[in-house]
Amino acid sequence: MPPPCRASRHCSTLLGSAPAPGDENRHAAPSETGFKDLRSEGPAYDDSWGTFEGLNRASLLDSRIPQAEDDYEQITEYPVRYFTVQRDGRTLDFVWAAVGDAAACHVPRTAAGDEAFDAGAAWLLSLREAHGHGLSPLAALDWLAKCPARPGIGVIAEDTPREAPSLDDLKELSGRY
């Protein structure tokens, strides 16, 4: 067994006894010497906090556009078709639509930082406009591809949409995980 970490030794000294590990959960597996590495347990343990990160990313993006009650859903359990959005040859984000329900949205590319969120706000407003015209999510995706290029927010890089087996797969592609 490895020796306890310095913080653990310090706590033991302050408390007058060795730490008693708590129950293992998907966020951590406490031990007497610190925490076990759970990444070998599979993808659910690789970044369990990612569950909450998605909500933070959505809130950050939503905060950049006016509130509305009549938008496409932002999550889906179906495969998604998507376009890559690029500016100056750099991938900023992905605009997607679900294959089997009324969901369409935007996934920022983590490495693009705030640029992706700024561009994403404009793409979300375009999706909102398509929704206002009564377009289905897949029709909205096609409509976006046919709209005049707007280099300030990036341009759609492909002629035809790609397909990901799930929204989570697309988010993984974006570098979120």
Rank of each mutant, 00 (worst) to 15 (best):
T160Y: 08
E41S: 00
K171D: 01
V95F: 00
E32H: 14
A7N: 13
S136A: 08
Q67F: 15
S31Q: 11
A149H: 10
P161A: 09
R109D: 01
A139V: 04
F94Y: 13
A122I: 09
P108I: 06
F35C: 01
L60H: 09
L173I: 11
G89R: 12
A102H: 13
P21W: 11
E77Q: 11
T160C: 09
S17E: 15
W143M: 05
K171Y: 08
G50K: 07
A140T: 02
F94T: 03
R176T: 07
D142Q: 12
A119Q: 00
A97V: 07
D118G: 05
Q86D: 07
V99K: 04
A103W: 04
L127Y: 03
G132N: 10
C5F: 06
G132C: 07
P137K: 03
A20H: 14
G16N: 08
D101Q: 07
L173E: 03
L124T: 07
I156T: 06
S136W: 02
A7H: 14
H10N: 12
L92H: 00
G132D: 05
A116N: 02
I65D: 01
D142E: 10
D37V: 06
A28T: 06
P2A: 09
G113W: 06
C147T: 12
T33L: 08
A20N: 10
S12Q: 13
V99F: 00
A29I: 05
K36M: 10
G152A: 14
G42N: 03
M1P: 06
R26F: 07
E24S: 10
A98W: 01
E158D: 11
A140S: 03
S48W: 12
A58G: 04
A104L: 07
L138K: 03
H106V: 15
V155F: 03
I65N: 04
Q67T: 13
P161R: 04
H27A: 05
H10K: 14
C147R: 15
T33A: 08
T13F: 09
S17T: 15
H133V: 12
A164C: 02
R39T: 10
R39G: 00
